[in-house]
Design a binder for these strands. Sequence first.
DNA 1: TGAGTTTTAAATCGATTGTCATAAAATATA
DNA 2: TATATTTTATGACAATCGATTTAAAACTCA
Lengths: 194, 194
Amino acid sequence: MARPREFDEDTALRLAVEHFWEHGYEATSIRDLAAVMGLTSASIYNAFGDKHSLYRRALDYYVEQSFGDRVGRFEGNLPPRDAIGAFFREIVERSLADEKRKGCMLVNSALEVAPHDPEFQRVVSGVLVQVEAFFRRCVEAGQRDGTISRAQPSEDMARTLLGMLLGIRVLARTRPERDLLEGLVRPVFAMLMP
Amino acid sequence: MARPREFDEDTALRLAVEHFWEHGYEATSIRDLAAVMGLTSASIYNAFGDKHSLYRRALDYYVEQSFGDRVGRFEGNLPPRDAIGAFFREIVERSLADEKRKGCMLVNSALEVAPHDPEFQRVVSGVLVQVEAFFRRCVEAGQRDGTISRAQPSEDMARTLLGMLLGIRVLARTRPERDLLEGLVRPVFAMLMP
DNA sequence: TGAGTTTTAAATCGATTGTCATAAAATATA
DNA sequence: TATATTTTATGACAATCGATTTAAAACTCA
């Protein structure tokens, strides 16, 4: 009944994520995206709407694949303290392997887009709340079975872990040094010990 | 021998800082700056060079006023652990009072400009090293006089404090909630206790 | 006072921005 | 096969970008 798409929407979106992730929102033009995605601007507008909508789709895609995967993979499959450990170990390794220094697209969005845009404000804030909740579930489980210290309330510990996570993401963007990042998490881990 | 300036370079620069700080590099146009600084673009180019140079001047100005002041004000005048405490207390209060959610211009630069620009890469990295050194001097002094725990090496503690600082700056930009930020620093402070 | 120099104001440069109009191309259904 | 519908390719829209030119204005020093 109609002409079919010549491109795969999912791979096109993945390519858009990659470019937005590396260059941010403002520094990316529709023509950049068209070149990277292998499409004309008309196709982009037809399939994804305007630049703002496409960035939203890209960020959602990134969050779903990045956080959803990590949380789901560790929680339940590992003892609570190990889940937190595995989470941070993966963040550190990923940061050190990040040749292009793209950092974390959520953190990038938190600083570039969210402050001036209520919609992204809400999206970013929501994800951070979820990550905090993940940490808190881990800490509470560990405090119940005695593998995590009860010296601090689980709320505070979860907040500290969230802050630590964001700090690593920022620091790694300009100083991706193993000693620095691994040294940074050691005292936090010591804090968890009962 | 020549026509004098009609504007004060220092106040003009301060106005440029304010705008770059709030909107970042890419989202700020020369015309925006001209309007905010009350100058024509010709005057800007004549006095500060191109946009890149002006941003550099603005960032240097921000760093000098912001970090230089804080470090100098606390270190030496307060016992080591109190210096760290005062530093974080001020960061939290400043973040909560930040109506426009401008965050920290150094952190903003670390994410928007530094990854694609070796010059800013160097500048930002240098400041972070200095802040880390400040924390380390405080921790070592506290460990010497027994007011700070020796459970972790001073290097690691300084790195953790640096990470925490950056984390707060990011978090406050989307979730400037007192409970969150104050709860976040409590376990870190407990960690310092001997 | 007049020569020399710098800062201003105003206009404009080509390039690029996000977005859209038009029309040709390609398919499914009737 | 013809019609209806969507996707493409091409090109252009006004607006804005960073940066510069031109010439008038304002000052100092000889």
